[in-house]
Amino acid sequence: MIDIFILIATCIASIAATTIGCKAHSITNNAAAASTHIMVSQALLDLTTGEVEEARNTIGSSRYANDNIVSEISVLELTRSYYRLTWAIERSASTLTSIKESGWEKFAASAISDQWKWHLEEIWLFRMGSA
C-alpha cells in the first residue's frame, strides 16, 4: 500500500516539476521577447531622432533636394552628417549582434524586417551611390 502512495506522490511531483519547468520557460521567453523588443525599438529610435535625424535630413537633402538647396550644404556639414549616420548604423549593428548572440533572433525578426527595413535600405542605397 505504501508503494502505491509513493508511486502516486512521485507522479504528482513529476507532473508538478514539468508544469513549473514549462511555466519558467514561458516566462523566460516572454522576458526575452520584451527585452528584444526594447532593444530593437531603442535602436530604431536612435536611427530616427536627434542628431541622426538631422544627419539623415542633411544627407537626404544633398541627395534629393533641388540644386539651390544642395549648394547651401557645406562639405563639412555633409561629412559630419555622414559620420553621425555611420556611427548610428554601427550602434544598430551592435544591437543586432547582441540579439543574435543571445539567441533571441526569433523575437526580433519581424521587428527588424518591419521597422528597420526601409531605413537600412535607404541608407545602403546612399552609401552605394545608387538612386
Rank of each mutant, 00 (worst) to 15 (best):
F107D: 00
A9S: 00
K23Y: 13
L125A: 09
Y83I: 12
F126P: 04
R84H: 07
T79R: 11
A31N: 08
K117D: 07
S92F: 15
L76V: 09
Y83T: 09
T79E: 09
W118D: 12
I38S: 04
A17R: 03
I27E: 03
L44A: 06
R56F: 08
A31K: 13
A16H: 02
L85T: 09
I73K: 02
L125Q: 08
S14A: 13
T19E: 05
A34W: 05
G21D: 08
H37W: 10
T86A: 14
L76G: 08
S61V: 12
I69A: 08
I59D: 03
E77Y: 07
F5S: 03
N29P: 06
W116Q: 03
T36Y: 03
I20N: 02
K117W: 12
N66F: 13
T49M: 02
I12K: 00
R56M: 12
T28D: 15
I38G: 02
H119W: 11
H119N: 08
V40Q: 01
G21Q: 07
S14M: 04
W124M: 12
I8N: 01
I89W: 11
I123K: 03
A65T: 05
V40T: 01
S14R: 02
A16I: 03
G103L: 04
G129R: 00
D3Y: 00
A24D: 09
A32E: 12
A43D: 01
W124C: 12
N66E: 15
I8F: 00
A109F: 13
I15Q: 03
L76F: 12
H119V: 13
S71K: 14
I123H: 04
A34C: 05
L85N: 09
A31W: 11
N68C: 15
N66H: 15
T10N: 00
N57M: 11
Y64S: 08
E53Y: 11
Y64I: 07
A111H: 12
L85D: 06
N30Y: 09
A93M: 14
R84S: 10
T97Y: 15
G21P: 09
A32K: 15
I15E: 03
T97N: 15
T48V: 01
L45I: 10
A43S: 04
